[in-house]
């Protein structure tokens, strides 16, 4: 399929890497082994110990202020149907593992959705409530609460069938240069990953910890907000949050993150 999880490697080698937990023999000696999968690693690995400490303790991680609020919303009836999330799903723990498969094609509607869009679809179709706004505290909190139920579980999205065209669209975006700096996502996050840009080490741009509490933002923020920031940095057009382009990119990078644990809510610089 010409898929490029990391630069220059053939899909067959890739498949092998995915099938066999890489560095398995070193896993015992590497305290960060849980944050790696083959050649892939999450931003946790390169984070300062003082930032990792915050992610590791749910009291120290301010994201849980949003999670607490979302847990209240979970059992609060809203919309014309007078239903809450709990009325259909019961305890939020029932969604354990669900987030590892997103983005995906929704069975009921045939629409392609990430977790945010699925939450809003539930609100509109099941509850008769208005969708939460992109980057609102409500949507960030509820997305985090849902993804939290899969924390520690490996990312595992399906890129076959109706999902394939989204994956391909995302892959194409990822390797297409844009903006005044004429950079593609892959230029930083694949080709030069691990190199320094001024004082900053370029990450692999992994999505498995989003929404993330970002120290720069001093708040919880979404993957699409981060993409808007990336595009702004390369002086390209900032695209619409929850729009088709970023949804496609999310699909591509979520596949690239296959095997990495869901870390939501992560803490990053």
């Amino acid at each position: 399929m010409g898929a490029k999880r990391f630069g220059g490697l053939a899909a067959t080698i890739l498949a092998m890497t995915l099938a066999v937990p890489a560095f398995a023999s070193d896993a015992k000696d590497d305290p960060l082994a849980a944050y790696r999968s083959g050649e892939m690693y999450s931003g946790y690995v390169t984070g300062d110990p003082s930032s990792r400490e915050i992610q590791d303790d749910d009291m120290m991680n301010p994201s849980f202020l949003w999670v607490d609020k979302a847990a209240e919303l979970w059992t609060t009836a809203d919309g014309t149907a007078g239903k809450s999330c709990a009325d259909c799903h019961g305890d939020v723990e029932s969604l354990k593992g669900a987030a590892t498969k997103y983005p995906t094609t929704d069975a009921a509607t045939g629409k392609f959705m990430n977790v945010e869009l699925k939450i809003n679809d539930c609100r509109e179709r099941q509850m008769g409530a208005a969708p939460f706004k992109f980057e609102s505290d409500e949507l960030l909190g509820m997305t985090t609460l849902v993804k939290l139920q899969s924390r520690g579980m490996p990312m595992n999205i399906d890129i076959t069938g109706p999902n394939e065209k989204w994956f391909k669209k995302g892959e194409e975006f990822y390797f297409t240069s844009r903006g005044q700096l004429d950079l593609a996502c892959a230029d930083c996050h694949i080709t030069n990953e691990g190199m320094y840009m001024r004082a900053e080490k370029l990450s692999q741009g992994q999505p498995n910890g989003f929404p993330t509490y970002r120290m720069k933002w001093q708040k919880l923020g979404s993957l699409h907000r981060r993409m808007r920031g990336c595009n702004d940095n390369i002086r390209a057009e900032k695209l619409k949050g929850l729009g088709e382009d970023y949804l496609a990119v999310e699909t591509y990078i979520s596949w690239r993150a296959s095997g990495l644990p869901v870390e939501t809510p992560s803490v990053r610089k």
Partner: peptide, 8 residues
């Protein structure tokens, strides 16, 4: 405190 390459 450094000036990073990608504020985003």
């Amino acid at each position: 405190v450094t000036i990073g390459g990608c504020g985003g």
